[in-house]
Amino acid sequence: MALTTIAGTDIQVDGEGFMVDPGEWSEEVCQGLAGNIGVELTEDHWQVIHFLRKDFEQEGVTPTLRRVTKAGGFPTKQLFTLFPKKPAKKMAYCAGLQKPVGCV
């Protein structure tokens, strides 16, 4: 585990850089996280990120891509546009969560 500075705040992250404590997340931190991976946040991004936060609160695990499409109602293609190439991991990163563990 390491401490890193995101948006002027010290944040705990794992070896890869994913946040360890979702409680340290804020919208300001999210801006910093998104900036780190070259994602410019739009209203569409925020809707997805807020869904991930809400779903994590309820389920206790980071939702998989399929769950975000099925339970969140966001089309797969849209997620690949908003968070190119690796949407599941990038969404989780921006939402201050660990990467999803589910295969599907």
Partner: peptide
Amino acid sequence: MTTTEGAPVVPDFGDDATD
């Protein structure tokens, strides 16, 4: 726990290596 100085720890999403 270690504190990183300078550049933040960011996951490598391999955006450059796409072949």
